[in-house]
Amino acid sequence: MKIIVCIKQVPDTNDVKIDPVTGTLIRQGVPSIINPDDLNALEQALRLKDSHKDVHVTVLCMGPPQADVAIRQAYAMGADKAILLSDRVFAGSDTWATATILAAAIRRIGDFDIIFCGRQAIDGDTAQVGPEIAEFLDIPQITYVRDLVIKGSTVRAERMVEDGHMVIEAPMPVLLTAIKELNKPRYPRMQLIYKAYSPEADIVAWNNGDIDADLTQIGVKNSPTNVKKSFVPVKEKHCIELTGTSRAIATGLVDELKKLHII
């Protein structure tokens, strides 16, 4: 079984602040980490590798050259191969463009049974890239996976929804997105950290020449998303005080609830 895990390097939002003037993330001096949901995806892939024969895990990461540390960390957790997709033409890509690039890289890799992504990245919270990759590759997708069983050539996943879960079966190849309830990611293995920085590690860097992504669909210029403003939503509470007799209060309450279409 061949598994591709897509990861993203993100600023550790425990430390991140938003510039009140520009509305963008202040990344300077903030440590970078592998996006937490992506670690859940990688962990599940590695668990499949631990429990099944002949599982090969490739980690794929699009990012600037500094994201090298992220793919080496993924390798040190136990991945067999890691690929860093880095090219100036990728810069500024939104989710559409990023998914276009990742799908092109996955086509270049060719052979796969499962593509595993995290649900969403903590620096953007869009949850779009995984599903878009599945659409571009025209394969089934199961999002918000909290449990997973492999049965022959199909996967059976528990998909978390707001008020419960769905059990969904899909044939491979399939794209899955992981949520934190799926597992607890392991630590990098110390021996593998050193191996990850040695020449024997199967770690490569690809640029667009290697994957031939459609140049009209990628990069900042071809990204259809237009960010008007970034802000932290302010929670607002409105209180209405009802006074009078019990009957008047009850009637008033029913009227208010009707106005809000709750009853």
Binding site: R186, Y187, M190, Q191, L192, Y194
Partner: peptide, 19 residues
């Protein structure tokens, strides 16, 4: 499990390499 006990010892005996 995560190799902390093996940090700084030769690879030949399961370590990370001298460090």
């Amino acid at each position: 499990e995560c190799g902390i006990t093996a940090v700084g010892f030769p690879v030949a005996y399961g370590g990370t390499g001298l460090d």
